[in-house]
């Protein structure tokens, strides 16, 4: 893994040198090291807004605060098949086109309510473009996973115990304030 990263870094450096003079308009790259996915800063920002729409900042942190979009990218990059990765990228690239047809504006120009409504449309409409559906379902599942496995939820909200030190097989539900 490490060696692959080193090689990747070398390629990036070499590639950077090669394209530097002619590529001043290219948007910045993603803020984390990715091995398989080619994602630029604009795409990353769009993904951040989508993740934030799925889990918004309320009285507690949301997806952007918890950098869940980066978790999504990391997981798609390392844990998904090439086919998934392709659909994910296609879907991500087509979200704005989809937003244009449905809302007459880009995702980022839409209001919070419109953004949520757009995602809900994808969630509910089985006939939406397959790439968009795949992208949405991967992003949503990984965002939820990242949220539930975040330090905020697990430790700050005490929903996970590393060292329970006990077992009760007859715990009265009435005693419980939370189900977890």
């Amino acid at each position: 893994m490490k060696r692959r990263l080193v090689i990747k870094n070398l390629l990036i450096i070499a590639g950077g040198i090669a394209i530097l003079p002619s590529c001043s308009e290219k948007p910045g790259t993603a803020s984390i090291q990715l091995v398989n996915l080619d994602v630029n800063a604009d795409q990353e920002n769009l993904l951040a807004e989508i993740a934030e729409t799925i889990i918004p900042h309320t009285n507690g942190p949301g997806a952007k605060d918890l950098k869940l979009h980066l978790f999504v990218l990391k997981m798609v990059d390392d844990c998904h098949s090439a086919e998934d990765q392709e659909r994910f990228i296609h879907g991500l690239n087509n979200i704005n086109k989809f937003a244009q047809t449905k809302l007459n504006r880009s995702f980022q120009d839409a209001s919070v309510a419109q953004r949520a409504q757009l995602l809900q449309t994808i969630e509910n409409a089985k006939d939406t473009d397959q790439n968009i559906r795949s992208f949405y379902s991967i992003t949503k599942n990984r965002t939820i996973q990242g949220f539930l496995n975040s330090k905020y939820v697990m430790t700050d909200l005490k929903q996970y115990e590393l060292v329970p030190g006990r077992y009760n097989g007859y715990f009265h539900v009435k005693q419980a304030t939370k189900a977890s």
């Binding site: 799925i54 918004p56 995602l119 809900q120 969630e123 939820i144 539930l148 939370k178 189900a179 977890s180």
Partner: peptide, 22 residues
């Protein structure tokens, strides 16, 4: 088991995630 309805997005989803039901 615990259950969380994840059909929605936004506040409703977040609320489900943080308040699972048995």
């Amino acid at each position: 088991s615990t259950e969380r309805d994840t059909a929605q997005v936004g506040d409703a989803l977040k609320n489900q995630l943080l308040n699972p039901t048995l």
